[in-house]
């Protein structure tokens, strides 16, 4: 069964271990600015936020050079550095803002679920980020929003 990241903001303590782990795993340095997961601090609550690997895959369909594909083992939408030309269309097409341009490499970066072992979930000390069976993940909220931004195709599939 496919697994997904399950995010429970109620358990987040703003320790930022996820951002550190993500940037270290993917960029080789402890730099939250290069993290693919971001924790938002609203003072009374903290919200870890990253790509939900949404079914619409706005980034993937907008890519003009086929540089984003589905990893069938994890369901993640993965950027191929070899194919990405750095045109940034995916960064505006993704209505969640979870594909970002990396000036240093001239390519885009996004969450790829670390190939099935997400470093953020492993680093999270409170279980606010967990990697669990897709059936009961709490991405519903984001998916509802995906529905609201939908361009029409989801209605046809429904």
């Amino acid at each position: 069964m496919l697994k997904s990241l399950h995010i429970d903001p109620g358990k987040c303590t703003l320790c930022m271990q996820c951002e550190m782990a993500c940037s270290y795993e993917n960029e080789g340095l402890f730099n939250p600015a290069k993290s693919r997961i971001k924790v938002f601090d609203f003072h009374d609550r903290f919200v870890p936020y990253t790509c939900t690997q949404c079914a619409e895959a706005w980034c993937m369909s907008a890519c003009p050079v086929d540089a984003i594909s589905v990893d069938h083992a994890t369901g993640a939408k993965v950027v191929s550095d070899d194919l990405c030309v750095g045109c940034k269309v995916c960064t505006i097409a993704c209505p969640f803002g979870t594909v970002n341009y990396n000036h240093d490499t001239g390519k885009v970066i996004k969450c790829d679920l670390c190939g099935g072992q997400p470093a953020c979930a492993e680093a999270c000390p409170t279980g606010a980020i967990a990697y669990v069976d897709s059936d009961w993940t709490g991405y519903d909220k984001m998916r509802r929003w995906a529905g609201k931004t939908d361009s029409g195709a989801a209605q046809a599939h429904a």
Partner: peptide, 16 residues
């Protein structure tokens, strides 16, 4: 600015 600019689309298109 390039970080999270897609959210501008999200905010406009979801009419939140």
């Amino acid at each position: 600015r390039t970080d999270q600019i897609g959210m501008l689309r999200g905010l406009i298109q979801s009419r939140v």
